[in-house]
Design a protein around this nucleic acid. Structure first.
Lengths: 167, 167
DNA sequence: TTAAATGGTTGTGAAAAACAATCTTTTTGT
DNA sequence: ACAAAAAGATTGTTTTTCACAACCATTTAA
């Protein structure tokens, strides 16, 4: 088992993963981001396995959005999820069938729907919040608090910057 | 509802995405990471659409690993990819069929394979390197260089920390 | 010298992602 | 005012992806 764990890059030796040289990926933000996301997502699936939002890429965001923004439309959710409307519609279907949210016709626009949380969904949202906080702790608690603030700041800016480019 | 990990949000107005409140996700590293990854991955698919590594989640890493680590085994690649062996084997199949890498029997262990890059694969690896560098620039160039180093440092530590937990 | 472990492949079924087409309602242009 | 365009949402389809289980071959250990 090549179980050497480098704590940090030394000057002379290149950074390795499982003893292997990873080439340009070593200095690619995107590669670390992708790897972290893969593991965190899998972990989240396990933590939510017993809930209606399990196995989802957008269900958690959806339930929190509906809870925090009563009357929100599916198309607005799609915009946050960065997914298309069919995909978003299916996520909503799932949550409606599970009884966590309900659809109503938007008062101002007959084409659109207005989504609302149910009692059951509200309880679910609360559970989800706690799971996310717990996961954040488990994965990122090692970051010293002064680094953490800076890390979040840059991450947020990367996110905002990226969204701006999408338009 | 403690808010002690509140980062840099200004006092009265909460952070919103497309005008919507995103609840706890606002302070979740994982959420920004996931969102950024989604967009960056899609972008990468477009940039590599004309190459053998297109539409892949692990092909790029694989070709770079083989190029930088001649004789590498599939199981070692799987460990870096954080995927299981069947998935890794199929990625290798794809690249072998495309003529970018080749399999040989490992000299020391007849069960194992030793993978090597081909001429074609070497050229591909070079193209991939440039694409990744270009993408990094496009997405993360806005980060001031002093912040960038710190950002990478924390990101890398998160990655290493996460891998250590997997064992 | 069996039994267990390791390296790899094949098969399968369930989700997920991306697209196109359709339908209804609103908005826009003339 | 009316036809055309745009916006909101759904249905359908096709292609990948993902995770498991089962399997074979070789090596290592008991």
């Amino acid at each position: 088992m090549s179980n050497e764990t480098k704590t940090f890059d030394q000057k002379d030796e290149p950074f390795t993963v499982a003893g292997l040289r990873i080439d340009v990926l070593d200095e690619a933000f995107s590669w670390y981001i992708r790897s972290i996301d893969a593991v965190v997502s899998r972990d989240l699936d396990q933590r939510t396995a017993h809930l209606d939002v399990a196995k989802g890429k957008g269900k958690i965001t959806t339930i929190l959005l509906v809870d925090g923004n009563p009357g929100i439309r599916p198309s607005q959710i799609a915009e946050v999820l960065l997914r298309d409307r069919p995909a978003t519609g299916r996520i909503i279907d799932h949550l409606v069938k599970a009884g966590d949210i309900r659809r109503e016709a938007d008062a101002d626009d007959q084409r659109a729907q207005a989504l609302y949380i149910t009692e059951k969904g509200s309880a679910l949202a609360q559970e989800v919040r706690e799971i996310i906080r717990a996961q954040e702790n488990d994965f990122f608690d090692f970051i010293p608090s002064e680094d953490r603030e800076e890390f979040m700041r840059v991450l947020k800016r990367a996110y905002i910057n990226m969204r701006n480019k999408l338009e």
